[in-house]
Amino acid sequence: MTRKRMSPRAGHILPSEITSERDYFDKPSPIARRDVLKTLGGGMLASLAAGSVTPATAATERTAKIAGVKPSSRYRLDDVNSWEDITTYNNFYEFGLDKSDPARNAGRMKVKPWSVEVTGEADKTGVFTLEDILRPHPLEERIYRFRCVEAWSRVVPWVGIPLADVLKRFDPNSRAKYVEFTTLMDPMQMPGQRRAVLDWPYVEGLRIDEAMHPLALLVVGVYGHWLPNQNGAPLRLIVPWKYGFKSVKSIVRIRFTARQPRTSWNLAASNEYGFYANVNPAVDHPRWSQAKERRIGQSFLAPRVDTLAFNGYADEVSSLYRGMDLRRFY
């Protein structure tokens, strides 16, 4: 820790600056934490449980701290989920289908060196190293709600750059109506790709105006640390008003295009996962309701909470969809 402690009067401060690092990571939520009873039990039953139940809470290694992160003044939220909640419960099918698989298997992915190919309808295309992409931009911490299409959610302190700031540097031309993002394809490093669960590599996309919206974030870290592999290191997207599957991980390619990209989940089941995938409590998934969500990291007795239109970001993004039938374009 080289950063100076700011006084609370200085205004916006990172949680890491007001609490010890340990408390920053293991912030107890108001509702009973998993740790509470851990000390009570132990012994035989616990080892029994290990057989039948996923020991999903094995602490994951902390990645290195990022220096010089600015906390966003605008995007702050309370009840941030713990490091453990964020890094042990992931949908990253490239590393396995179980939520606990990515934390177990993603360690073997090599994220250094990393480069991103920029192609399509833009003037400055080419292959850029991650450092090239990040260099000009200050890193910002933004705490966003994250809503999975599977009706669970969490609150995450991401570290990143507004996507627009990066995209503009490539000078997209007037034919660039959409942006497509592609995840690394490498079955050697990504064992989940050895089976055709999805049509690999994972592809996602945004309309250009969505991509240029100030809320869309290109993310490199979480909790003031570099992204752990299971969270999509070293570079991922976060589009907080859309279901989580839009927020593509471990990006190796950005393509500007005139046509709507063919995105992975939409290709797999177009009646279940739309291209837009805006969080919308009024439009159900065919197999479950989207009206409510379960905040993870809480006691099994905690009730679900109501899902908000555009995941609570309606004021900022609903104008992008003016005049569109959101039931049709789900």
């Binding site: 998993r34 740790d35 509470v36 009873l37 851990k38 009570l40 039990g41 132990g42 012994g43 039953l45 616990a46 080892s47 029994l48 449980a49 290990a50 057989g51 039948s52 139940v53 996923t54 020991p55 999903a56 809470t57 094995a58 989920n81 453990e84 909640d85 042990t88 419960y89 939520k99 606990s100 669970w152 969490r154 379960r294 993870i296 990291g297 099994f300």
Partner: peptide, 17 residues
């Protein structure tokens, strides 16, 4: 096993969800 995990005995846990 489920009861132990529910009561978070030892390292048993049902995870974040």
């Amino acid at each position: 096993g489920l009861i132990a995990a529910l009561l978070q005995m030892g390292s048993a846990s049902l995870g974040p969800n």
